[in-house]
Simulated assay, not measured.
Amino acid sequence: MSAMPAPGAPRTPPKVRRPAPAPRVPTPAGVVAAFQAEPRSPMIERDGDEWLVTFWWADADADEVLLFVNRLTDERDLDRSLMERLRGTDLWHLSYRMPGDWRASYAVVPKRPGRPAPWRDLAEQVSLRAALDRGLPDPLNPSTMRNRVGNTVSVVELPDAPAQRWLKPRGPLRGVLTEHELDGRRPWVYRPAEFVAGGPVLIALDGEMWVGEQSLPAMIDNVIADGLIRPPLVLLVPGGDRLRRWAELNGSGGMPDWLADVLLPWAVAGHDAGTDAADRVVAGQSLGGAVALLTAAERPDAVGGFVAQSASLWQEGLAERAGAMPASARGYLEVGRQEWVLLGPNRELHHRLAAADVRHDYAEFNGGHDYACWRDGIVDGLRAVLPPATAG
């Protein structure tokens, strides 16, 4: 077996200004009056063919308040995401006009008197992102999730956003979730109650994001119960800290070979994983989405399926490597319409795969680089690559 992938050189995505400013609009007086009569956040009101979404924050001590909404906030124009204070009150507000199928996570970052703004003078992208990722959830919004750094953030969704029917657990896990040690990692293995030895295998990257309150095992239980997929053995591979993740999940980190030569043989030997490459799927988001594509493209001897969500195709040469996918592969590719850096490259890859007769489903959702959206899309991906046997 090969060793754990050697760390590659960490790279960061290009910091590109939004091609058009986010659709911020003045908060109407009627919305202000409605909030004062019945506080709730965000307030969602129909506005013609779209919806007016108004966020509120109560904070008497803040000098400034930044509203960080996934992919509406432009990290190169943060002043445009500063909330406005309602004169004579401790209330701050900001309104956007959005289509009805939009969903996003968001957090609030206040500036305190006598202290520097957490988002200013941070020219280096990693430090800026760390400050924004530690924003505060909206206390008036009960809908929350955990972001990549483990921070609780809020979720806004409009009436036409795709229904996340499989997200909520319907009871205790029916299968068994166990944690293991392998080659310096601590992967989880979920064996659904319905899994049959030698059956399909799902590798989920950034596995720490899929255990706990946002449970991929629970979602898989739900779609199995609904008869929508063949029950897979699930291998949840942790991404580790920021530096390790950047090193190992970039296009030169060697992760596809580690999955094929270390993880899968281990799962066959100790967990009854199937050996048919056509029934082995790698699922990932962002950098993990790129790894899912590369594994299916470059290790077809071991993996035949991919679920790639918002794949980081900004990396030089990666789209070309992923586009060399064998026609035997089966996959699912999706990207957010708010992802101005990734939308074009993912569309281009979709067309390239279609021209090469690679069977795959392609989707665009109205959202950003966001687990609030990916936690629904991953189920769509599994339904595409692991349909029930009766589906043909």
Rank of each mutant, 00 (worst) to 15 (best):
E334K: 00
V335H: 00
P21S: 03
G331T: 05
L263R: 10
E50G: 13
G274T: 03
A324Q: 11
G212Q: 05
D49S: 13
M4N: 11
W57G: 05
E45V: 15
S154K: 07
W119R: 05
G274V: 04
R347S: 03
P232S: 09
R245V: 01
K168N: 12
P28K: 04
D241V: 09
F195Q: 00
V211G: 03
L205H: 05
D272I: 04
R174F: 00
A356R: 14
P265A: 04
R46Q: 14
E157I: 08
F55T: 09
P19M: 00
E339I: 02
A218Y: 01
T178F: 07
A267W: 03
R134G: 12
G251V: 11
P159L: 09
D226H: 09
H93V: 08
P28L: 04
L235E: 00
A319M: 02
R375P: 04
A292G: 06
L343V: 00
A319P: 01
T54L: 02
G240R: 03
M255R: 06
Y190G: 10
N141H: 09
D376V: 13
S127Y: 14
R191H: 09
L287D: 03
S95W: 05
E320T: 11
G317K: 10
V341H: 01
L202H: 07
A384L: 06
S310I: 02
R170M: 08
D77H: 09
D138S: 07
A296M: 05
W258Q: 02
T89S: 12
V108Q: 02
R97V: 08
W57T: 10
T144R: 15
L349Y: 02
D121E: 13
G317P: 08
W166V: 12
F68I: 13
P200I: 03
A297V: 03
P300T: 03
E157P: 07
D61F: 09
R186H: 14
M145I: 15
A6S: 15
P162A: 10
D226P: 06
V341A: 07
R85S: 11
D276R: 11
T12V: 15
W314E: 00
V281Y: 00
